[in-house]
Simulated assay, not measured.
Amino acid sequence: MILSPGPRNAITDVPGVLVGHADDARLASGVTVIVFDEPATASVDVRGGGPGTRETDLLAPERTVQSVDAICLSGGSAFGLDAAGGAVAALAEQGRGFVVGPARVPIVPAAILFDLINGGDKAWGRFAPYRELGYAAVQAISADFALGSVGAGFGARTANLKGGLGSASSKIESLGVTVGALAAVNALGSATVGDGPHFWAAPFEIGDEFGGLGPAPTVPAEALFPPVKPVAGANTTLAIVVTDAVVTKAEAKMLAVMAQDGVARALVPCHTPLDGDVVFSAATGRVALPEDRLAALSAIGHVMALTLARAVARGVFEAQALPFAGAQPSWKQRHR
């Protein structure tokens, strides 16, 4: 199987998917929303010991609601869950949502990462600003969007380098299917092999999307144990993988499970008690799968994992250091 990225090498290469960011430099935090042109089948897989989520229970295969309007990723820890409320408000103004008699309720599952001690001003008073940021992110949706220190990845960090928001896409020519991934990388672990420039995800890189350096020539033992600051609940990588294939809600769950392998391929360590890693999966349902459905789903899930690993690496590669004393250096500061 030979993979190639779409024209943007981003999740928006999947038709019907748009992305919007809103962030605040003084706050050093932000929000990213993924909005579907039409409601998309979705599920989620939650790993690690410190997740923070909203509306993920309804994504279970047996729940009544079968599709979602958007997915919201936010900084701000528990305060950031307010961002989904702003996204819901913006979508309601557009007439989007699950129909209940004369009412429409936008369905926007959400997850948050911890960025409260990154140097930004979090003295916001009684109410955190994330609801307004969620609203603004929906207003900003586009097929073209920035990577790095933007949106939900604005204040993100990793063990040794500034974290950020990354995205990637892959075309599975044999199936006529496109896969996209987006990740906000705020990990306890490291995306690079020790203090060197090489990414753990290098074997899956396409072209020079995160430097083109290839795999590290050697992996020193200490690289398997990167320096960490074990503050409970202070990390988390948030991700979403999307395909344009027709899949059921139960199949979307299995795709989310498979896609989590992309996080494990790109970050060392991951899924720890100090991370709240969450991977959403969604399908826009525009491409029918062949008769050998299980083989096709296996291929899609595998490609989702590879694409997500690339998105994680791109998030760190494209990040910019925060303008605060003692801020983590970016990959480009250290290795360019």
Rank of each mutant, 00 (worst) to 15 (best):
A239S: 15
G196A: 13
V241K: 10
A201Q: 03
W200K: 01
A191N: 08
V185N: 00
G214P: 07
L224K: 10
D244I: 08
F199Q: 00
P197R: 03
T243M: 07
A183G: 06
V193H: 01
P230A: 15
F199S: 05
P227M: 03
N186S: 04
D208H: 14
P203I: 10
P226S: 09
V185P: 02
A216T: 03
N235K: 03
V228L: 06
T236W: 02
G196S: 13
H198Q: 09
V185F: 04
S190A: 15
A183Y: 01
A202D: 10
T236L: 05
A232G: 04
D208W: 03
A234L: 07
G207C: 11
P197V: 05
N186A: 04
N235L: 02
F225D: 14
A216R: 10
T236I: 12
E205S: 07
I206P: 01
G189E: 04
I206M: 15
T237S: 01
A221S: 14
E209M: 00
V242Q: 07
A221I: 14
T237R: 00
E222D: 15
F225E: 13
D244L: 05
L238E: 05
A183Q: 09
P220C: 12
A201T: 00
I240F: 05
G233M: 11
V228R: 13
A239V: 04
G189W: 00
L238S: 05
T243K: 05
G212A: 10
G207M: 12
